[in-house]
């Protein structure tokens, strides 16, 4: 049997070709190209030739010492902090309620669908929608607050930097808490039920079970969510770019991606500086990814297997049921 099986090994290589080719062309090559541009004097509209700089790290130095880039990174963390903490707390709370160890909520399916909904809507649309909702002086938000008597004159939200940051964070929170909740629910459901049964025999209350069993076992997923959301924050473009004309009051909502866009595709077309900024951002993301990768190494497989099996079983059950009712 063995030699015969070996003879099929070449298909492993053959079937991987499209992936490898596409990856090399559309990811690897651009990464290298971007890196190279970072060391050159490449700038200007419609220019295609460039030369390496005599001081190779000049662009990198320029970016690292540029206050705007620092602001962009700082904003990224501030915006992330403002949205992640409430997001994870709310998601945990909802996950605890919805995973059904304490009680059953009617209409769970509906709630999940509705909570997750903003996540699939085009970010560009959401940005424009919110900028219209918070419009000044006649936007819905202003008229609501005035009706409720909270303010007596229209307020121009996007002229205040904390409001601008707050709205961007809120949108992120609003778009992602449903997703985080579903992830956490599936994490909870994937846990070994024996632990809970044992705890129950020991007379543990629902909340005790949550704090002593559920939460510690969600650690990996929580860290995972944390890091991916941070990476997502670094990449955030559509919302800050469209919500408050480009970078908000006094660069309040300037993010790393908007910074790169401004460098490369508006104004002076400084591809070299933008590339250097991209690479710095890339390194930050690599470090963050390495953390995730390290944490996930083993748990990945085990968790995925279990989840998939559970889903497969359920599907089988459903199909059987369908077959039975159909017949």
């Amino acid at each position: 049997m063995r030699p015969k099986k070996l003879s099929y090994a070449k298909y492993g290589y053959i079937f991987s070709i499209p992936f490898v080719v596409a990856f090399c062309m559309f990811t690897l090559y651009p990464v290298i190209f971007t890196l190279v541009i970072g060391f050159t004097d490449f700038k200007g509209l419609g220019v295609t030739d460039f030369h390496f700089l005599s001081e190779p790290f000049k662009n990198f130095q320029q970016i690292l010492s540029s206050p705007s880039f620092k602001t962009a990174l700082k904003n990224t963390f501030v915006l992330w902090g403002l949205n992640f903490l409430p997001q994870i707390l709310l998601a945990l709370l909802l996950a605890a309620w919805f995973s059904g160890t304490l009680f059953k909520i009617k209409g769970q399916g509906f709630f999940k669908v509705v909570f997750y909904m903003p996540n699939i809507i085009t970010a560009a649309t959401i940005a424009i929608l919110f900028s219209t909702l918070f419009g000044y002086p006649m936007g819905p938000m202003n008229s609501l607050l005035q009706k409720l008597g909270i303010i007596d004159a229209p307020y121009n939200f996007f002229q205040n930097k904390w409001w601008a940051k707050g709205v961007v964070s809120f949108i992120q929170f609003w778009m992602w808490y449903g997703y985080t909740m579903i992830v956490l629910i599936s994490g909870i459901l994937g846990m070994n039920t024996e632990w809970f049964e044992a705890a129950e025999l020991d007379g543990a209350s629902g909340w005790q079970k949550f704090f002593y069993i559920t939460l510690p076992n969600l650690r990996t997923i929580l860290i995972y969510t944390l890091v991916t959301s941070l990476i997502g924050g670094l990449q955030m473009f559509d919302i800050p770019y469209l919500l408050v004309s480009k970078s908000g009051p006094n660069n309040a909502t300037l993010t790393a991606s908007v910074f790169i866009y401004n460098q490369a595709f508006s104004g002076s077309y400084m591809y070299n500086r933008a590339s250097a900024a991209s690479m710095i951002m890339f390194i930050i993301i690599c470090v963050l990814s390495a953390v995730v990768f390290y944490l996930m190494r083993d748990k990945y497989e085990a968790a995925a297997q279990k989840e998939l099996k559970r889903a497969a079983r359920q599907r089988l059950r459903e199909e059987k049921q369908k077959a039975r009712t159909g017949a």
């Binding site: 700038k43 540029s66 206050p67 705007s68 880039f69 006094n250 660069n251 002076s268």
Partner: peptide, 12 residues
């Protein structure tokens, strides 16, 4: 802040 923005975003 104005100068910074110009320096950081334009080739001037």
């Amino acid at each position: 802040a104005f100068k910074t923005n110009v320096a950081d975003n334009l080739d001037i």
